[in-house]
Design a protein around this nucleic acid. Structure first.
Lengths: 228, 228
DNA sequence: CCCCTGAAGTCTACAATGTAGGCATACGGG
DNA sequence: CCCGTATGCCTACATTGTAGACTTCAGGGG
């Protein structure tokens, strides 16, 4: 019986920020954000909860660390024209979101409470990279910022959209059941209910791609007209 | 001395779901989401915390109630063409977000954990209204859904974007200071830091409007080409 | 080899939170 | 007037984040 090391295998290989964060990420991936408590995380690492404070100041900083860990894995591709690059980055971001759906709320809302300059550098780097890309492609810095913002907005919004479709019974193919649509009074929500079949086969990658296509080409047109 | 009724004025005018929710909204508006605890809310209403459970099952349901209360105030305008209507709705949504910035994280993330059919009806109604609008404007139901999704994505993403600019010292006009940009190493983030002046005068309404213009006209073009 | 210093980890303790379960009380219909 | 039901309150508890003091331990200078 010995002791409560849930993870079991490795024996006390000296803690370390990266180790803490990735354990936290595993925990959140497996059991959701609520499960990420200092005590549970300590237990999973076979350590006293209090040890964590050597590596994370407080729980909120731990959450920031999580977003940093995930966003740090985002790769902005090289050697293509700017539109293809942005598309590539968007799809990679989508991949990360689907890989860690429970972290998505953090990705969306953490920045709301942290000014740009104080965010973990890893989370700001993609912004810098993309600005560089756009400026090298000939955009004015100000125009580059506009493009980035529109891109970011649509991307993040799309992810919010897409992850809603995963909710509930992911193994149920009938959208009426899967999304609990039968709870909506038919008189009040006729169009929505009629859309059940369409809701049933949602293709996130494609929807993202088409939206981006429209947005990016539109931006290119609008901006070349003025100051690009 | 009497008792701990912080709100002071009114004396026990019988509780009621609407009263509870709007007190919760005030509390969140004034002191942020963290301040919304059962005890604080009870105190503000001059009631025992436990009374709240008559009107809100649990804290999570209270948060859902908040999003419902705010989204219920969204008005989708009438009597214009579909693009103008969507624009109008977007600006009204923006108004609500700026009015209740602390609730925005809820608006963005609550739907992620609640299937469509189980959401408070007030939060689904705008979706139905907009679908109706688009279908009446001649779109296929499926096409209407696509338009709605792109619209919603950009709108929500834009709000995430815009609310980040409010963070930190809202009364400081210098963006370097206001956003803490001096914390970013100049070698690693040159473009971003150079953009400080542009970041300083951000016009959210305009940015929203221009993005929407591009997106909506692009959508119209793409869809009339196929099945609108 | 020993001891000493700082870091790494742990223990104890506390205030705050959500909420279950039982009780009081006030109100409205017979 | 009386009683049943909805409304509100009280007590109690398990769980959380985290402060502060203590322990353990690695490793480097005498």
């Amino acid at each position: 019986m010995s002791e409560g090391n849930t993870a079991g295998s490795g024996r006390k290989p000296r803690l370390d920020r990266a180790r803490v964060l990735s354990a936290a990420l595993e925990l959140v991936d497996e059991e959701g954000l609520e499960a990420l408590t200092m005590r549970r995380l300590g237990q999973r690492l076979g350590r006293d909860p209090m040890s964590l404070y050597r590596y994370a100041e407080n729980r909120s900083a731990l959450l920031d660390g999580l977003t940093e860990l995930v966003l740090g894995q985002l790769t902005v591709p090289h050697g293509m024209d700017w539109q293809a690059t942005l598309r590539g980055a968007a799809h990679d971001m989508r991949r990360l979101a689907l890989l860690h759906p429970n972290v998505v709320p953090l990705l969306m809302t953490r920045p709301l409470s942290t000014p740009l300059g104080l965010r973990p550098h890893g989370t700001v780097r993609p912004l810098e990279q993309i600005l560089a890309l756009l400026i090298d492609a000939g955009f004015t810095p100000a125009a580059a910022l506009h493009v980035y913002r529109a891109f970011y907005a649509f991307l993040y919004g799309h992810l919010l959209n897409e992850l809603q479709e995963l909710v509930a019974n992911p193994d149920e193919s009938d959208a009426v059941l899967r999304l609990g649509l039968y709870h909506l009074p038919a008189k009040e929500f006729p169009r929505l209910r009629a859309l059940a079949p369409v809701l049933a086969d949602y293709d996130g990658a494609r929807e993202l791609d088409e939206g981006l296509g429209i947005l990016l080409s539109g931006l290119a047109a609008a901006l070349t007209a003025t100051d690009k």
